[in-house]
């Protein structure tokens, strides 16, 4: 199967293939071996979640895809091109953008500087005006220090700034963590709107109800491996199994 898809990618049959193919991905933080062979695919235009308990390796998987680990091994192919030996900035230039778990809003930059920091890497990114239309709070507070925003506003800013870059493949790490329900709904609407516009999204989530409201498929991560895949339409049928995985 792996060989077949790889060959197909090389022969250019992109429409039937995964946009992102992760195979046998291993990752380390310093000395500690966190990922033990992660396998999954993401197709063009899909929203896919990584579900799992704390410490299962979801965030590490996202970081490994982006090239942010000290050491990684295996295979991560973006549109058929191997990225495992590339540095983060080269991976970013292939059209992958990250919204990190800790949000990564810069304290020494204003809201507007935070928003315009990531350079445009491709055509088709959202304009500043369109972003301010989507997130009116950011416009109102554009001169404020980035970290003076509320948690929800910082999360909006962290998502908004990667929409400007033209990258169509987004890695969102727990965008709803610690936010009020009304903000979570707004983020859900934003993700759905992005999907309609053709963005491909990998979403790390603890909150599987939220995940179910936006995603096409769910991968379950456990002890540094993908142990199961559940299509969103089969979620109800698999709810017991999922509860067991997540320990809820």
């Amino acid at each position: 199967m792996t060989d077949a898809t790889t060959m197909a990618a090389e022969t250019g049959a992109a429409s039937t293939n995964a946009l992102l193919e992760v195979r046998g991905l291993e990752g380390w933080y310093g000395e500690s071996h966190v990922l033990h062979g992660v396998d999954f695919n993401v197709h063009q235009g899909e929203v896919v979640t990584l579900l799992g308990r704390n410490g299962a390796g979801k965030t590490t998987t996202i970081k490994a895809i982006m090239g942010l680990l000290d050491k990684r091994r295996g295979s991560v192919r973006m549109a058929g091109q191997e990225t495992i030996s590339l540095q983060a900035r080269h991976i970013a230039r292939m059209g992958i953008a990250i919204c990190p778990e800790e949000r990564g809003i810069f304290a020494s930059l204003s809201v507007e500087e935070n928003l315009t920091l990531p350079p445009k890497l491709a055509e088709g990114g959202l304009s500043i005006d369109r972003i301010y239309e989507l997130f009116p709070n950011l416009k109102e507070r554009r001169r404020s220090q980035g970290t003076k925003l509320s948690g929800g506003e910082q999360q909006m800013l962290a998502i908004a700034r990667i929409l400007r870059t033209g990258s169509k493949f987004l890695l969102l790490d727990e965008p709803t963590e610690g936010l009020a329900p009304v903000i979570v709904q707004q983020i859900g609407r934003t993700i759905s709107a992005l999907k309609k516009e053709g963005f491909t999204i990998v979403l790390v989530e603890q909150n599987f109800r939220f995940a179910a409201s936006v995603a096409d498929r769910h991968y379950v991560v456990e002890q540094g491996k993908v142990v199961d895949m559940i299509p969103n339409h089969a979620l109800d049928a698999n709810i017991e199994k999922l509860h067991a995985y997540l320990g809820v």
Binding site: M66, G67, L68, Q87, A88, R89, I91, A92, R93, A97, I98, P100, G104, L117, P118, P119, L121, I162, T165
Partner: peptide, 8 residues
């Protein structure tokens, strides 16, 4: 790290 991940 994050600035690098933005392609800079």
């Amino acid at each position: 790290e994050l600035v690098g991940a933005f392609g800079i």
